[in-house]
Design a protein around this nucleic acid. Sequence first.
DNA 1: TGCCCCCTGCAG
DNA 2: CTGCAGGGGGCA
Length: 296
Amino acid sequence: MPELPEVETIRQGLTDTIRGKQISGFEVRLPKVFKVAGPERDQRIIGSTILSVERRGKLLLLRLSTGVTLLIHLKMTGQLIYREGAGIVLAGGHPTNDMVTAVLPRKSTHAIFRFSDGSELFFNDQRTFGYIMLVPNPDVSEVPLIKAFGPEPLGRAFTPARFGAMLKRRPHAKLKPLLLDQSFIAGLGNIYVDEALNLAKLHPLRLAGSLRPAQQRALYQAIRQVLRTSLRLGGTSDNTYVTIRGEQGDYHRIARVYHRTGLPCPSCGTLIQRMVVAGRGTHYCPVCQRTPRGTG
DNA sequence: TGCCCCCTGCAG
DNA sequence: CTGCAGGGGGCA
């Protein structure tokens, strides 16, 4: 579930709370969620300090002082919840946070980091698709998983010209599956692809090579706009996503098409339709987003 | 490029 | 009860 805006919101929260802290304990309650890449035997987690919390696509990167890096992928239902200390409710604490943190660890808590100051970080995941992976490299750009990622859509290197060139290289790809492909652009998922395509008035099945220059630019702008808007609102909490303090994001309140089947398109009022593309529920306006394939 | 799959929980 | 869910790796 978490896509770029949600993961970035979590990254910022982690930077504010655990950067610089020393890990005094690391507990894995469901072994399969913890993966070790390569022959690294010494895990070098306990006793290390968190140097930085970074993000690449939907992947979180925790650089540790011992030279290793922890990669955390939340997949569909993963959460990271921070708590100052067991049983401690801070004066002025957020009610939602208090409710969420009071019941930790819970059934879906599969790993726990404990810090030397008494604070804790809980990794929860209902569907257990998410993982924490230890990689020995301090430089993660060589990790195959990350090396395969396309550009960051909010990064400086992602320009309209580059996007145009990228589309030109995949002329026969349908827009929806193409934008979901992390090796094309890193960080988009089902929500923001649907939102961006509606904003750009492009059909999900439209072929990438058929876009006129103005439409390429519109799609570029739409991708950046929906991501920035969602980031400003703290992400989408349609389902299990919450911030590290247990707070909801607000983007779903202003979503254009996502999970709005049968409701009016914000541009023209036509009722939003749902279809399945690339095995994913796909929401679109049949009027704004006409012409599946043509040069339209 | 399109399935199948990893899982659990929840809506219908 | 069945079907469906926002990710994405592996397979033909």
